[in-house]
Nucleic acid binder design. Structure first.
Lengths: 186, 186
DNA sequence: GTCTATACGTGGATAGAC
DNA sequence: GTCTATCCACGTATAGAC
């Protein structure tokens, strides 16, 4: 039996990029095949459930990446302000200033979005919870922190929609700039 | 030659619903056919450019509807507060409390989004401009008004994404509630 | 203006060799 | 674990009758 061409992690990274770029319906098996360098039959070997299972696996993979790169630093021993600044830097890089789409949004607005409802609900609430905690640490009430955290995720997702629709990066940039100032403001 | 079964306006309304429900890639010609009661060949009679032309026509049709139902009332001789309240009521109804998607978002995140870039840019800026003007009328500076208006559209789009992804209407509801309080606040 | 019928590619998916 | 080859349904699109 031939050795694996790419590690599972690398395959998932390539699938992540493909789904973000093309969306769930837009990413055909032919494209996913080209993105990974694996023919369709090989993809089915790794993901017997087909495209739906690929998307679910990519979502779980992304959750792991975010836990490590986005949420864990928010629990570090630094000032809340610094941690928020670092988070927004990471987000800016991850979305490439608004040029790259959000996997959550791509699956949330797919035709089979009900298939992904559970993992998406978990993904959004994990993100919101992490932001909420740092807001509380900065002195906001639990209720206010919750509102700010939900609002942050909502604004980032909305800004990505306007940026994608118009091709104008300013919507994403302004939103991040504003969040830097307003998230922890009293 | 047989009489038209549905008026062009009614056809566009049905196509609008279909695109909002299924998205641009998700809405197949078979579904658009079922939605309008016209077979595929008849749809091509009305829209020789195919699905892309259908979406463009629907977008123009929606622009007309919004001009009349959403933007015109914002220029009426009423207090800014009342006009904003009315606008948010209309928006709440239009998105059915978050249950129905936004056509702009569906096209903005489609694979051929570049095809729709010009009309989408126009559509978003028309919406933003209308809100900006009423904010100015309420006493906000032009710059502040612009920011609030962009933010309103961004938050509505983002709230729709989270609501669709999680199935939880609270994101949309809270966003509208918050906008009612905060849009014109000094 | 609507229909039936059809063309032709591509979609997701599988069988089985190596 | 990867490949070639293939299946069949459905995708968009068109021709031509009424």
């Amino acid at each position: 039996m031939p050795a694996a061409l790419l590690s599972r992690e690398e395959v998932l990274n390539r699938l992540l990029d493909a789904f973000r770029e093309r969306g769930y319906e837009g990413a055909s098996l032919a494209e996913l095949s080209a993105a990974t360098g694996l023919v369709k039959a090989s993809l089915y070997h790794h993901f017997p459930g087909g495209k739906s299972e690929m998307a679910t696996a990519v979502l779980a993979h992304l959750d792991g990446m975010l836990a490590e790169q986005l949420y864990l630093p928010l629990r570090a021993d630094l000032s809340p302000a610094k941690k928020v600044a670092a988070m927004l830097d990471t987000i800016d890089t991850f979305y490439d200033g608004g040029r790259k789409a959000c996997l959550f949004e791509r699956l949330a607005t797919s035709v089979d979005h009900t298939t992904f409802r559970r993992p998406l609900t978990r993904a959004f609430s994990t993100w919101i919870d992490a932001v909420e905690d740092v807001c509380v640490e900065a002195g906001l009430s639990r209720a206010a922190a919750r509102g700010r955290a939900e609002d942050l995720v909502i604004r980032i997702e909305g800004a990505l929609v306007l940026t994608a629709g118009t091709g104008n990066l300013k919507f994403f940039e302004r939103t991040l700039t504003d969040l830097r100032k307003s998230l922890l403001a009293r």
